[in-house]
Design a protein around this nucleic acid. Sequence first.
DNA 1: GTGATGACGGAAA
DNA 2: CTTTCCGCCATCA
Length: 97
Amino acid sequence: MTGVERERAIIDLIRSVPEGFVTTYGDLCPEAPRLPGRILATTSEKVPWHRIVRADGTFAQGERQRRLLRKEGIPFKGRRVDLDAAHIPREALLANR
DNA sequence: GTGATGACGGAAA
DNA sequence: CTTTCCGCCATCA
């Protein structure tokens, strides 16, 4: 698996996350959760970046991200996304292709 | 080549 | 709850 292939696979997975749901960096790339983060931070591709949150429901882009998530009706549990209700695991994303 | 870094994760303290 | 530490991969100095 080369770098670009891996990156493309991750971009595709991000695009497959439906509105109103979220997935985690770890789901996007179990072997290296930091990779999706690096890609989102540097890519110019159009992707629903706000639907990617950390494994504990917290997220990296503060208010900006919070706004977009709420706009889609994603449920919260205090300051974190309620993963029990809105999380789509990796297997589901892969199956849904 | 070596070392540091990052939109991370999980375990340990 | 918080802070460390280490592993992961690609990139950059």
